[in-house]
């Protein structure tokens, strides 16, 4: 929604600039033809009013053409996904599709949780406490898209016992935080909630 408002605002601004220029040209022509600035000024108000109202109409007509490219109702209806996590074993990760992207859901072992919690914040490129990234310490829910250029990192790999992105060598730890490599930020935590102990709703 935000980006299209910016586009709309830009278009309206450009429209007003264009209309102002053409109004200058038109009113210049009339003044030149008549050499009578007085009459030109009185007529201007009617023209300005017409232009202004016309610009509103053009803006209103343009908006649907822009908005139709925004996610449509059927896409927005799939904005949330419910996942059954009852069968996920400790130390295993499942990958689900959410909004067209992979989401990793991992049931972490005690060792992984301890490792994640004991890392000093100064060592992190993108400092974040593990507790900030999870709702229940056992469950790690992250968008499986490398924050560098978008590849899907591989699980149970890398120097930090977490994930490793083969495209350009980013290493993520057991909390999904970037530790080594070109990725700028930690793996994204999507909006999610526990519907009950066995179900997570993402989005």
């Amino acid at each position: 929604m935000n980006s299209s408002y910016t586009i709309l605002a830009t278009i309206i601004v450009l429209l007003f600039v264009f209309l102002y220029l053409s109004w200058v040209i038109v009113s210049n022509k009339i003044i030149d033809n008549e050499n009578n600035k007085e009459i030109g000024k009185r007529r201007d108000f009617l023209f300005t009013a017409s232009y202004a109202l016309g610009a509103v109409g053009v803006g209103v007509s343009v908006w649907p053409l822009i908005d139709q490219m925004n996610p449509d109702a059927s896409v927005k209806a799939l904005a949330t996904t419910e996942v059954d996590i009852s069968k996920v074993e400790q130390g295993k990760t499942i990958t689900v599709l959410w909004r067209g992207k992979p989401v990793f859901i991992r049931k972490r072992t005690k060792e992984e949780i301890n490792e994640a919690q004991s890392v000093k914040l100064e060592e992190l490129k993108d400092p974040q406490k593990d507790q900030e990234r999870v709702k229940k310490a056992e469950w790690l829910v992250m968008v499986g898209v490398c924050t560098h250029l978008g590849c899907v990192p591989l699980g149970n790999k890398g120097d930090f016992n977490g994930w490793f992105c083969p495209c350009h060598g980013s290493h993520y730890d057991t909390s999904g935080r970037i530790r080594k490599g070109p990725a700028p930020t930690n793996l994204e935590i999507p909006r999610y909630e526990f519907v009950d102990n066995n179900t997570i709703k993402i989005g």
Binding site: E34, L46, S50, L53, G54, G57
Partner: peptide
């Protein structure tokens, strides 16, 4: 709303046209 708008705009443009053409 659109038709109401268009009628008002038609009125304004009509007046502009008459003013312009009077010369």
């Amino acid at each position: 709303k659109i038709i109401l708008y268009l009628i008002i705009l038609a009125g304004l443009v009509y007046l502009s046209m008459k003013k312009l053409w009077s010369r």
